[in-house]
Design a protein around this nucleic acid. Sequence first.
DNA 1: AGGCAGGTGGCCA
DNA 2: TGGCCACCTGCC
Length: 287
Amino acid sequence: MNWTPWQYLKLKCPINREALKETLDGGQAFRWKWMEEEDCWEGIWGTTVARLKHATDDRLQISLPKALEAKAEIGDYLKIGTDWQQIIDQLPWRSDEILKTSISAFQGLRILKQPFGETLLAFLCSATKQIPQIKIMCENLAQTHGEEIVEGYHALPSWQRLSNATETELRKLGLGFRAKNIKRTADILADSPERLSTIESLPYAEAKEELMQLPGVGEKIADCALLFGAEKLDAFPVDTWILKSLQNRYGLHDWNAKQLTHFGRIHFGEYAGLAQQFLFSWERSES
DNA sequence: AGGCAGGTGGCCA
DNA sequence: TGGCCACCTGCC
């Protein structure tokens, strides 16, 4: 396939190599892969295909398939115009050494704005699975049910399309018990096409409550979909890594996930979700 | 070979 | 409300 020449992106905040890797392939998104030969990341979201390269001075370059050149929406997806430094400054790093350390390790780490519907789909796949497995499930879903964008590159299927598949078909893609939830959610969303965009426009608390009406969507998956797919930066997903971090590094040994979700939102504030991502990346890199 | 992994929902006290 | 367990599958 033909790709356009590399072009610099106008990044408000620079991003280091490690932070880029964490942003694209650290559990927010599941459709980026490292291209060793090209020394770049290649990813798909919505109906966009793109390559990203880490350049000197922590800048970024982008290249697109020539056939899709006009379709680039990388700015929104990567939130390149957002002043992340200003947001970080509002986190309690001054009084929180752990947070301070993880922020300095991942300079430029950011929260993506992925398409809401496919973020929900990816996280419905995520239950008790590790990142490589989730990526395989997403790839299988795209290959078998998703629309082809350019040769060999498939979008994730819409909920409408997914509702045409049977649970048995979905199970064959390695989804396991997640297939039932995905099928049932697809049937619901296909019946009310406006529902997701309505949810996306609600404030965090109401959006979460609405999302959790869907089968297979509990607190954690709802928080992930809202943080990574709807710009609700006050969402604070508690997974096993954050659980470990808060229990061991913050000394909250007897706290359960529900209590820690509350703690996170109180302690880290309006941008708790960004703090979560720093702690998450730090915890994983230290393990 | 058995336990566990970025959870959820149902059942029981 | 709070704790426990089954649920698919692949990987160590």
